[in-house]
Design a protein around this nucleic acid. Structure first.
Lengths: 101, 101
DNA sequence: CAAATATATGAATATATGTTCATATATTCA
DNA sequence: TGAATATATGAACATATATTCATATATTTG
C-alpha cells in the first residue's frame, strides 16, 4: 500500500494507535488520565462505573501497546499515560463539534 | 460509564470515529483524500495499490458512517471527505514523532 | 500467619472486522 | 444493442475484539 503524504510505516503506526484507543471505555480511561495524571485500577473502575476485570483488561491492553505505563504503590497499581500523543488526539476531538454527527 | 471531562455521548462519538478510521487502508484513503480532495475508487485503488473490492468496501463503510461522501461522474464515483474533523486527527498524528513507538 | 483488599489472568463466548472471490449493476461509447 | 469499464454487493471465512466469570496472585494489616 502506498499513500499520499504519510509513509507506510507512519500510516501503520497511526492506525495502530487510533485502533488501540478507539473504544468508549478506553477513551474514557484516557480522558480520566488526562485530568488526573495517575489513577489506580479501582479509582478508574469506580469513576467510569465499569467492572474491575474489564478495566484491568483494557489497561493492560493499552500498557502492552505502549500507550500507558504503571507503577505499584502498596496494594494499588497506578496507571498513567505514556504515549502523550494520544492526548493531542483526544483534545483535538474534544474541541470538535460533533453535534450533527 | 462516566468520564472525566467528556460526556458519555461525546466519548461514544469520539470512539466511534477513531475506530472507524483506525485501519491502515482507511488512514491511507483519508490521507489521499486530504491531499486530493476528490478521488475515484480506481484512483484510490491504484494509488494505494489495493484491491478494488477492498477499497470499495472500505469507502462505503466510511460513507455509511458519515465520514465520506460521494458523487457519480460518468462511470466513476468520486469520494471526498465529509467529516472534516478526521483531518484534524490525521494532521495531528502527522506532526507527532512516533519514531520510538 | 490469616483475612482483607487490589489487581491480574485465562477460559469461554458472542460479536465484529478484514479480506477475498465471484458476480451483479451502472454507465459510456462504438 | 453489445462490449468495455467502473463500482457495488454479498457470501464465505479467518481472525480480532469485547465482555463476563471464576480464580489466582500480590500486598497490607491485624
Amino acid at each position: 500500500m502506498k499513500t499520499g503524504t504519510l509513509d507506510i510505516e507512519k500510516v501503520e503506526k497511526v492506525a495502530f494507535i487510533l485502533k488501540a484507543i478507539g473504544n468508549p471505555l478506553r477513551i474514557g480511561i484516557i480522558d480520566a488520565l488526562r485530568v488526573n495524571h495517575e489513577l489506580s485500577v479501582s479509582e478508574i473502575s469506580s469513576q467510569l462505573e465499569a467492572e474491575q476485570s474489564l478495566v484491568s483488561h483494557n489497561l493492560l491492553n493499552m500498557k502492552l501497546k505502549g500507550i500507558l505505563e504503571s507503577r505499584r504503590k502498596g496494594k494499588n497499581i497506578f496507571y498513567r499515560l505514556k504515549l502523550m500523543e494520544v492526548l493531542k488526539v483526544i483534545e483535538c476531538m474534544e474541541t470538535c463539534n460533533l453535534d450533527d454527527f
